[in-house]
């Protein structure tokens, strides 16, 4: 699979990473290289094989419905690069 510049641009936008146009060619080549190498997986016969999401062979445990967390806005917001009145702050969003 060889990626073109447009695809790299699209993927970078999806991932919210700014990629200068001047880097697109190089990145397309590099990513194509890795994806091409990954494509050796196409040799494998996977007929009837279940996909493996987790190696953990157990049942999902559930917790009780108890409030035992939160309640400290200061701790939650103290690492924020910008904040106001207990809120996190971002550039204005138009919905």
């Amino acid at each position: 699979m060889s990626l073109d510049k447009d695809t790299v641009r699209k993927v970078a936008t999806l991932a919210r990473i700014k990629v200068p146009d001047s880097d697109l060619d190089h990145m397309a080549k590099e990513l194509s290289g890795v994806l091409g190498w990954i494509e050796q997986l196409n040799e494998v016969d996977i007929a009837g094989v279940q996909p493996m999401t987790s190696v953990a062979q157990m049942r999902l445990k559930m917790r009780a419905d108890e409030v035992r967390d939160g309640g400290d806005a200061e701790k939650v917001t103290q690492n924020a690069p910008e904040g106001a009145h207990g809120f996190f702050v971002v550039p204005k969003v138009v919905e």
């Binding site: 917790r63 419905d65 108890e66 939160g70 400290d72 806005a73 939650v76 207990g86």
Partner: peptide, 23 residues
């Protein structure tokens, strides 16, 4: 429910901002 789906923070409506937030 008293607590959130994947955390133990409270769900009550109308609290001060970010006071019912776990990490």
């Amino acid at each position: 429910s008293k607590a959130k789906l994947f955390s133990g923070a409270a769900t009550a409506f109308g609290a001060e901002p970010n006071t019912q937030v776990s990490f």
